[in-house]
Structure formats: C-alpha cells, structure tokens
Design a protein around this nucleic acid. Structure first.
Length: 271
DNA sequence: CGAGCAACCTGCATGC
DNA sequence: TGCATGCAGGTTGCTC
C-alpha cells in the first residue's frame, strides 16, 4: 500500500502529536506481523520519550531515549492518532498510549507490516543496512542510475523498484515515473542511455514530490494520520487506467503483468 | 551471483 | 445467496 509519499505523509501527520511525548503504556493485541512484535515491547517502551521521527525509504523510525522503534506499513498498514479513550478497531494490532492522552494506533489488515525495536543505529539494522539512496536526495542522480543499469538485463521498472538501487519507488509511482520519462517499463535496464537515466531520475523526483504535496495516493484504504485520504489518485496518469485514453496522445493505456505486478503504460508515448 | 516466483495475510470485486 | 477465483500499495527468502 504505502509507498514513500504515503509513509512521508504519515510521518508528517503523526510528528506533532508524538514528538517529545512520553510513552505511558503499550498494548499489543496481535504480535503476528511480518515479523513478530517483540513480546517485551511494552516494558521496553515504558516511560521512554520520542525524541525524533525520521524516515528511511518506507521505514518510519521513532527514535526513543534507549533505542529506536522501526515501523513498516507493509501493504495495508496505517498509523493514526486518537484520544486514548478510543475503542480499538478491527486490525488495530498495537497501540502506543502517551501520557498526554493521545494514542498512536497501528492498524494493518494484511499484517505485512512490522514493528521492531533496535538499540543499534537503525540504519545499521539488517533490514535497512543495504538500502539504496533516498530518491529525493542529490546522491540519487542520472550518473548513479546509469552506473546501476550496467549489465542489468532486467526490466527498468523492476530495477527502479529494487530497494538496493533506490528506496521508496513502489508499484504506483514506478509506472507513473516511467510514463513521465517516456520510457517503456519493459525496456531492458542496460539499454537506457545516460540522458534517459537523467530524465527518469528527474521524473521519479517529480512524481514523488508532487505525491507528497498531495498527501499521498489513496487507492482504496490509505488514510493520512488525520484520517483524510490522499489526493494524488486524482492525478495518476497511467496507474489503474487500463483501456482509458492516454492524457497526452489519447491512445488506450495498456496493462500487463511484469514480475507479478500490474504495470501500466502508453505504447505510443513511451519508447 | 542473478532471475523468477512463492510466501506471508485479509478484504474486496467478479463470475458462476 | 454461496462459493471459488483473482487481485491488491511490499519485501524476504526460497529454488534454479
């Protein structure tokens, strides 16, 4: 579900409510996520303060006094802030209750998400240590991508969705960025010229920046921490628009499956 | 090593 | 109405 813009939207949404707040109580209703929630999480977090909330790729990092809480939203995860008197909804697997009467709730129907605790620097954690650059930073650029594609025969869409190459580009924005860059998702990565790498990098940065500005994309169930949907779905150019006219040329948008993922493109505009 | 794909889960839309 | 099927925004960890 959430790609980088949705995770960043969530980060910005919860930050004012939990920054510098003290954890009073933690309720784990169902620890069985992608990896189990540590069974002593409540004891660990008791009386700790949230000092900083950052994001690395699609991971949210809640830096506490004695370590860091790593949260991943998987495909269907959501974080929300409520009064701590709010009754738990279905799939509210974990609640972090603060001393100022607000609760951070983790809801995840499919349970592909994760809540983990680390005492080492989170960027050195097994799940994060091999991640590629942040797409919005300067070290993600055309030269870098051009290096990455050398001798890579895989489809360019699959390459830009590989977190070791660049983080945060998920299935929606991969199709969208390739449309903006006028590059077919099926192109063998190594066939891209340096100029095309520059164009594609610029397209990825543009699409992610615009999506963050719109509060992310709500397809069916993503909500910002304030309970509102994201508005970027209204601006999607190809994703889930199979057989509808291309916004540029009017030809029907095609859909295929590429590496088991739905993929959308315009055969006329993209080469 | 890389590529391909099964697996983890629930919910929803579709078709018979 | 019920049941089977397929699909969904992610990522790891198999097999070949």
């Amino acid at each position: 579900m959430p790609e980088l813009p949705e995770v960043e939207t969530t980060r910005r949404g919860i930050t004012p409510h939990v920054l510098n707040q003290t954890i009073q109580q933690v309720i784990v209703r169902n620890p069985r996520l992608r990896w189990p929630i540590p069974n002593d999480l409540a004891q660990i977090l008791h009386k700790q303060k949230i000092k900083k909330i950052t994001r690395r790729g699609k991971y949210l990092l809640l830096h506490c006094d004695k370590g860091c809480l790593i949260i991943h939203l998987g495909m269907s995860g959501k974080l929300s802030i409520t009064e701590n008197t709010h009754a738990a909804d279905k799939h509210d697997h974990c609640e972090i209750i603060f001393s100022h009467h607000k609760t951070l709730r983790f809801n995840d129907p499919r349970r592909f998400g994760a809540i983990l605790w680390t005492t080492i620097h989170p960027h050195k954690h097994t799940l994060l240590k091999d991640l590629g650059p942040e797409p919005l930073l300067k070290n993600f650029n055309g030269d870098y991508l051009y290096q990455c594609i050398q001798n890579k025969n895989m489809a360019i869409k699959q390459l830009i969705m590989d977190g070791k190459i660049v983080v945060g580009v998920g299935n929606i924005y991969a199709s969208e960025a390739l449309f903006l860059a006028k590059i077919l998702p099926t192109r063998a990565a190594q066939t891209l010229a340096l100029g095309e790498c520059n164009t594609l990098v610029a397209a990825i940065k543009k699409i992610l920046t615009q999506a963050i500005k719109a509060g992310g994309t709500t397809l069916k169930d993503f909500l910002q921490a304030n309970g509102k949907p994201g508005y970027f779905s209204q601006k999607l150019l190809v994703y889930q628009r199979a057989d509808q006219p291309c916004r540029d040329c009017g030809k029907a948008i095609r859909s295929i499956r590429l590496g088991q993922r739905a993929t959308y493109f315009c055969l006329q505009c993209q080469k």
